[in-house]
Write a protein that binds this DNA or RNA. Sequence first.
DNA 1: ACCGACGGGACCTCCCGTTGTT
DNA 2: AACAACGGGAGGTCCCGTCGGT
Lengths: 195, 195, 195, 195
Amino acid sequence: MSKAQETRQRILQQAAELFNQQGYAGASISDVMEVTGLKKGGIYNHFKSKDALALEAFDYAFQLVQQHFAGSLRGKHHAVDRLQALVNAYAGFLDAPPLLGGCPILNTAVESDDAHPGLRDRAQKAMDSWRGLIHRIVQKGIERGEMLPTVNPDCVATILISTIEGAIMLSKLYGDPIHLKRTIDYLNGYLETLR
Amino acid sequence: MSKAQETRQRILQQAAELFNQQGYAGASISDVMEVTGLKKGGIYNHFKSKDALALEAFDYAFQLVQQHFAGSLRGKHHAVDRLQALVNAYAGFLDAPPLLGGCPILNTAVESDDAHPGLRDRAQKAMDSWRGLIHRIVQKGIERGEMLPTVNPDCVATILISTIEGAIMLSKLYGDPIHLKRTIDYLNGYLETLR
Amino acid sequence: MSKAQETRQRILQQAAELFNQQGYAGASISDVMEVTGLKKGGIYNHFKSKDALALEAFDYAFQLVQQHFAGSLRGKHHAVDRLQALVNAYAGFLDAPPLLGGCPILNTAVESDDAHPGLRDRAQKAMDSWRGLIHRIVQKGIERGEMLPTVNPDCVATILISTIEGAIMLSKLYGDPIHLKRTIDYLNGYLETLR
Amino acid sequence: MSKAQETRQRILQQAAELFNQQGYAGASISDVMEVTGLKKGGIYNHFKSKDALALEAFDYAFQLVQQHFAGSLRGKHHAVDRLQALVNAYAGFLDAPPLLGGCPILNTAVESDDAHPGLRDRAQKAMDSWRGLIHRIVQKGIERGEMLPTVNPDCVATILISTIEGAIMLSKLYGDPIHLKRTIDYLNGYLETLR
DNA sequence: ACCGACGGGACCTCCCGTTGTT
DNA sequence: AACAACGGGAGGTCCCGTCGGT
């Protein structure tokens, strides 16, 4: 990787975390300068605007999260096992987070929904990808007879995601992982009932 | 109410909605001036800083939400009925919201958790109040034999709040109330199992 | 005049001279701050952008020039006398200029013609007004028999304005009023031939 | 011409036109990069600063104009013919200009007179050269008896240049060659009277 | 000879908050 | 109680110029 690409990647990585903690509107280019150690010229050489940087930084953050979860699925084949693995992987979001500041999709969705169409589109796409993953696991599970045929894949996706994201919010608000742990336990039980 | 108090109240009301949509960092005093029709002096006469206004505006928003839910409990006496009434009351958050921009507790919690201790405290207190309400309903329900004695009030609070807040986020992200509706149906069923 | 109007007028006056000397692109808001003694907040309170200030400053400059020439016509009734008075009034543009930096129409026309449509429009309107004045004087002169009926008012306007503006440029370039003086003498003679 | 010299020449040529249209202050190195297709390094390799480039670009532009006029003199021997040829050559400035943006001497003189001593010097030298040419033609014409001995060569130079430059400004301001055409016709007549 | 990355700073705009005035 | 004028500075963008690489 060329030096330029390295710098660009470093900016993305550090800006992603910054935006994830302070929000897009709450973090300034000066803040980005501080965390990257670069001056404005150095940053604007790689990204033509704060907006463009924010968009790419979100994509970077989402990709980080995706990798985190892709790993958790390895070796699990039963649909319910896979869903439980996904859910359990969220425990790491507070203990050993892929990036500080909580779930970037949640953060970005909440900040952008009424104010920032560009970011909102990215957050939607990311959420689509996540919902699609759950949907496919459930559907395959039904086809294979691993899950009850009455289960609605869309509903499962909505319930899992809602509960987990809400719990992340709660645990971050209180600085206490207990809320996330409770919902993870609960969701594991819920998933068992779908076998 | 004196004229001054009226003005103050109008500022709070309009600023609350503005902050709820654009976020604290994303909305400027100029924006507040625009929605209130007042000039700077008129606003700073009532609030000594943007921060102070934001704090009070959040309290105002939370109180609005509280009233919305307090109403839904009227006439319900069985614990499970009361919890279901609360849950169902959330449907109105998208159809006929007490204020635009979604749930202020969610929005404020997500924006403030890593960046704004003052707001974070307010959001925590608001959440405490909400959790306390659910907790009390469950506890009383157990005492009265309306709910299974094995039910953990803290867990119920965490699950209900997480799921609903996550669903609000989802529905706002997609501009589609379906996600919130799904979780409300689901939670009604979940609550039935606790009888 | 209110204090605000006074300040606004002072900004216009000083900015007009600044832009007339350094050009629109060559003068910064910092320069405007320096000559007015105001800070940015004070300037942007009266003008919403540098562009808006530049446009109004040009209008102000043109009005200054107009007053300068309107005065020179007083008491002259014969068409040729009036035209000569106009031409002679230009001598003052270097000795006792209404504002430093030469003729604002010339300066603005040259800077804006390929680059700044807004300013270009203003410069055109200003020039229209000047051409219209000469045109009317000539036309009335012909009607009254003060000037030869073969004279073309449009041509006279073009020739007078071209020659004077070109001479102002020359004299400013060399810092020497001789060029302007020569053309004024010459134009006085030229105008005599139209009697 | 070496490849380096070719590149240098290409930069000058394209920068000259750019500066002639947008002005020195109004055109940035980025603009120069765009029109030349080179990157910063490629430009600064040949010119040590924007200033140096601007100075040379002006010289280049002036030389272009000079060649344009030198050609018009070929085959004309009578002083008045030669002056008329010069004047008529200006018609091409709008129809088939040696470079876009009007007369570089006029543009540079107007922009630099109060603000840019370096450019102003160059513009003065260029103007000296033009005035000198007219002066010599007139003087020789008097010596040869082709022009009236009472004619003042300096005055003729001032009048011709002023009128033409002013007319270029007018025609560029309105985007209409009529003003330049009128003054050219007029100056041809004026020159006839000097025979 | 040319490119690309970057520093350091100027630019315009908008920000928050204060003050004097009505 | 509300406005209008202003200070002082932060924000995002773009600028000019340098320097290491190729």
